[in-house]
Design a protein around this nucleic acid. Sequence first.
DNA 1: GACACCATACCACATTCAGGGGAGTCCGCC
DNA 2: GGCGGACTCCCCTGAATGTGGTATGGTGTC
Lengths: 225, 225
Amino acid sequence: MNRLKAKKPIQVALVEDDPLLRANLAAMLNSSDGFHCQAAYADGPAALRGIRASRPDVVLMDINLPGMPGTDCVRQLKELAPQLPVLMLTVYDDSKQIFKSLMSGATGYLLKRTSRDKLLEAILEVHAGGAPMSRQVARQVVQFFQKADEMPVTTRNASVVVNLTEREKEVLAVLAKGYAYKEIADQLKISFETVRTHLRTIYEKLHVHSRTEAVLKYHGHEGGR
Amino acid sequence: MNRLKAKKPIQVALVEDDPLLRANLAAMLNSSDGFHCQAAYADGPAALRGIRASRPDVVLMDINLPGMPGTDCVRQLKELAPQLPVLMLTVYDDSKQIFKSLMSGATGYLLKRTSRDKLLEAILEVHAGGAPMSRQVARQVVQFFQKADEMPVTTRNASVVVNLTEREKEVLAVLAKGYAYKEIADQLKISFETVRTHLRTIYEKLHVHSRTEAVLKYHGHEGGR
DNA sequence: GACACCATACCACATTCAGGGGAGTCCGCC
DNA sequence: GGCGGACTCCCCTGAATGTGGTATGGTGTC
């Protein structure tokens, strides 16, 4: 954050629909040595038009844009400037969003709660040829590969479910038939709360965040990312 | 690198066949606040035996081990301690090696020319739940996703879904991938409320009362109830 | 034109789910 | 004989879901 003193600043373009956040980010960039907010756009189409002409060094893009999703915007941006690094900003560390962004061409992926310093560091990093990711994001990406490794063998519900204990498998099996928590509790003769405790650890082990995702994994569907 | 002052140091286990490098790394760790080199192994089998008993917080592993490749070692390590984070060290930023490591279960991937500070930072990072990667590695990982921009679409849906209108089928298809209502709304470019309206009529037509039941019908599982 | 049907959208209320704690028993293993 | 893992149970909070009603514009049909 302290080198680049006399060098020309990194030209950053912003794409963010929230006016307040947009202004804050721009101000933050312009008050930081080595950075310059070249332009700020409120939506995808405007960004595409502007960036085509102005050629920034780095783009900071909100993933939730009105009208055109950030991921679509990245994809089109990458078509007209393949080398241009794009940093996605999001409030969610949801794996579906992450992979969608990365597949669309995003170069890095940061959570919005990233601190100012980390954000500036990430801009430098991406400009230097890296691929900065927030901690949670990086871990998800890495886990993707570990899951992908189990995939080809797809012994249906055998491979994904292996880490689960016997009881957890029972709970998941009932869950996967569509029963509500209290019904699962009745069937297994345990309390509602115990069902929830099991489900929590099951979700953790399967890397999912909703019963639907868990059911999809159980049935080997491996739901969309 | 300066927090964790009075806290218990992170217990690190080393796996590195080069005696000199091994000693250097151990010394470096032990001379750094907040870190402790708990053990250092020269090969995979020794590491597996030792780590099973000693339960370190983090493992630093050379990818080029004599006898057993580092990737195999990681795989076995992950079987006996799935939560244990493993940082791979390598001189190559070869993409095949990187992906093999990640698929084997490595949590982070650093080039050996990484500086002392960056290395310590990476250990903290991985211990805090992240997935530190050297710049070159991160970029390769991201590029992987951009090349793999396809998806296995297995949606054979004809059975129960016939009574539904076109739009309803679209909604159900996205629902069945595990997306939340608001995500469905984003994808179909309609409002959250409209998604809910569609879902209501879908549930009615399918005679179900929860998304899990709907998903099961959609995938032809019929669920026992 | 009246009518049915579809897609869109909003409000309100109750229930369910998801994630964060903590905590006690039992059992096996070093 | 302590320690960890599995299983059990409870509390709290906030988000997501399920169900009821209502409404507008478009489209096609009789």
